[in-house]
Each structure stands twice: as C-alpha cells, then as structure tokens.
Design a binder for these strands. Structure first.
Lengths: 225, 225
DNA sequence: TCTGAAATAATAAAGAAATAATAAAGAATC
DNA sequence: GATTCTTTATTATTTCTTTATTATTTCAGA
C-alpha cells in the first residue's frame, strides 16, 4: 500500500521537524512548506491526502490560506494554532477546516486526529451509493430513486444533491455550495441556490412544505439529513 | 505519582497559612511568595503547575504580575480577590487569568477550581466534538444534540454555545463574549447577551429555571459546565 | 445574621431587519 | 422546440434588536 501523503504548512522549523519525525515514523510521507504561498503551490502541484496548516503564518494568515485552498481542495485540512486563541477555532471551522489542534500537542492525539481525518477522506469516495430513508442516491451512475422509482434531475440539481448528501449531517454554507457547484465567480449568488433548492425539494421531498431531507439553516446554509 | 506544585503569591501570612494547610492536606506541594516580585522569580526558577495570585499585593498590583507572568507562563493562574471587586475580576479574566476566587472562600470550592484548572493544563488541545452530560456539540458539523435528538439553534445561538463550550469550566466575561460574537462595537450591549443566553438555556437546559450547563456569575459573566 | 436599597439578571413580547421561499418570465443551451 | 438556467419581483418566515417589566443577587448598615 502507498504511504498517505501529508503536507505541513508552518513557518517554525522546529515544529516542522517535530511533525516530520512523528509522522514519518508512523508511515506517512511528509511534504513541507514554510509559507502560505509556498504551501498553496505545493498542494496544487501535488495534492496530498491531508494538510496540516498553521494559523499564524508570516506571509498571510492561515485563515486566508484555508479559504484559498478550499476553493478547490476538498480533502482534510487540520488547523494548528497556539494556545488561548479559541476565537480562531470557530472561524477556521466555519471556513471549512476539518479539525483543529492547539500547540503544543501530544503526538498520540495528533496521530488519532490524522487517522480520523484521512478516514473521512476515504469514506467520501467509497460511499457512493447511499440510502437515506426513501431516497437512494447512486453517485457514479448519477441516478436518484425515491420509493424505488427513478427521479429525473437536471445535471446541476444532481450535483447539488450529491454534494449535500456526501456531507450528510453537516451544514454546508451558501458560499461553499456555490463555489463547489457554480465555481468561484458565483459565491454571492445566493438566489441561484434558493431556486435550485426549491426545485430539488419539489422532486425529492414527499411534502416540500415540510422538508425532511434538505434543512435550511438560516443565515448559514443547508444541511442534508 | 508526583505531587502537583502550586505557587501562592499573597502578602497576608494568615491567608498563605490557610491555603498551605488546605492544599498540603490534599496532596499538593506548596510554594509561597509574599510579594509580586518574589513570586515572579519563584515561578521563573521553578514553574509550578498552577499559580494562586492575590490581586491586592503591596509592591505591585496583581494585575501587573499577571501580565508579566502571561508573557511566558501558559499554565493556569487563579486570581484571589476580596469581595466586591467585580471590576478587578473582569480585568483579570480579560488579561488571561484562568479563574478567580473571592475571599473568604470555602475550601471545597477552592479545591474544585484547582482540580479543574490543573485538568485543563493537561488537555491542551481543544475538542471539536464534545459531550457534556446529555449534550453533544459538534462544531465542524454545527450540530447540537440533547439526549440524542438534534436541536435547532440559530447561527448566533450556535456561535455562542460553541464559544462557551470550548471554554468549558472557565468564566467568560460579558465583554469578552460580546466582542467575540458580535464584534468590537457591541461590547456594552449586555442585554443582547442576556436575551441570547435565555433562548439558549430554553433550548439546551432540561429545566431552564435551574440551568445546569450555563451558569451565571453575577457581575462578571457566564461559565459553561 | 438580618433587612432593604441598589445593582444586576431574567423574562416576555413586539417591532424591525435580514433571510428564505416561491412564482413566473425571459435567456441560453441542447 | 423543449429543457434547463438565470433573473426579477413578491410574499413569507426567521432571526435580531429593542423596550418594558419582573425577579434575583449583592452589599451596606443595623
């Protein structure tokens, strides 16, 4: 089996060294970047299985790097920060971080979180066929069945449903959904999204006035259940 | 197992004596300093697991000692204050104190606070998914479950609960919470906070008249337990 | 340690603002 | 030409903010 590749983006050499030793001795392949810019380039050239990203970078804040990465990088990103910056956590997680770890950290905990994050990457690609109540979604075949009967969805509708269902249970922000489905330019076109959510609900919900699958989180986004 | 070491910085000999007796009989190793200056030197030479710091010191104010310690000392600092000094307490918490106790204090409460503070030293990383009694808070997914059932919180309610729960056991001052959730401009809008605490309690507490999770610290702030 | 005034907190409720749902018509695409 | 997408306008809903009232806590003085 191939070693899973992990990219470390952190400006402190001793932290990078510590992470490198810990990770390589646990059979990961490690890549390193000292600045946000460098990290983004490395991730683009050679997308790793997981990124460890420090919040306090010299060139640009880790939050900005996170946002930039999240425009195209879908796998796990674990944020690292110094102690006592709880306010950063909610922000980072809102911007799409997978998890969060405060420095200094115990290596057992680091490894546990990395395993969990990588497992999540994989489950994303494995569970391509899912059953949610009366709904059956088959992503490779691009089909959706409700109560055994095939539904007719447009391409965009299907992409939207697939995105939501892969992230079952978690809230996806409007921004994130728009970026994923319509690309960078559409991030503020919330109205698009509403219209498509409407047509989707009409098709997949038994009663579209009382949606069971697609829940609205006012001010934030939508959640598939 | 080693005894945890606690440094007391207080000018009143009878208080030091009382603390010494209480703590040593509970299996802590106690160090003592009568002035701020002395305390800083002792802490530097031999960093303890926890510092108990009196706000009213003769040579320099406890606030200054706190600030100086916080430039390098990351572990817990519990402030001791006389009664009727909310302003001091708020100031101390905003300067990075872990907790506070008003003199005279009951020894059971002292010991409970010390245990909680020392526990926090040890688990330095912040959990993004936490279980508190019947509550389950998952920050990345933005979900809260009570007794296994999903609760419906608004965006602001969730942010508030996330902030409180990340700082479990600590008192967060009104000012701090307002700044974190509503931004700089809202620091004096204490009434906002009360209204949101109210709606949160209604949703997460079994009996909102007797809140188990969100405790009020009158004149100071709130504490999540 | 009790008591009452003052400060602080909790609560309810209504009005304002922000956000979301919906319908429907015009553009673009296949 | 039918389907799908985008835009606009309107209505509905949710959330936030403010105000007023009541309850609780704190603390000084007896």
């Amino acid at each position: 089996m191939n070693k899973a590749e992990i990219l470390i983006i952190d400006d402190e050499p001793q932290i990078r060294k510590l992470l490198e030793i810990t990770l390589e001795s646990n059979d990961y392949k490690v890549w390193q970047a000292a600045t946000g810019k460098e990290g983004i380039i490395m991730a683009a050239n050679h997308p790793p299985e997981l990124i460890l990203l420090d919040i306090g970078l010299p060139d640009k804040s880790g939050h900005d790097v996170l946002k930039e990465l999240r425009t195209w990088y879908a796998k796990s990103i674990i944020m690292l920060s110094v102690q006592n910056s709880e306010a950063d956590i909610v922000k980072a997680l809102d911007n799409g971080a997978t998890d969060y770890l405060s420095k200094p950290f115990r290596s057992a905990e680091l490894l546990a979180r990395i395993r969990s994050a990588i497992r999540r990457n994989q489950s994303q690609s494995i569970e391509t066929k899912m059953v949610c109540g009366d709904l059956e979604i088959d992503i490779p075949a691009r089909t959706v069945k409700k109560g055994g009967e095939l539904l007719k969805l447009t391409s965009t509708e299907f992409n939207l449903l697939a995105l939501l269902s892969i992230n079952e249970g978690r809230v996806l922000t409007h921004q994130y959904i728009l970026k994923q489905i319509w690309g960078m330019g559409a991030q503020s076109e919330t109205q698009y999204l509403r219209v498509f959510i409407r047509t989707l609900r009409k098709k997949i919900e038994t009663n579209s006035d009382k949606p069971e699958h697609i829940h609205t989180e006012s001010g934030v986004g939508y959640r598939f259940v």
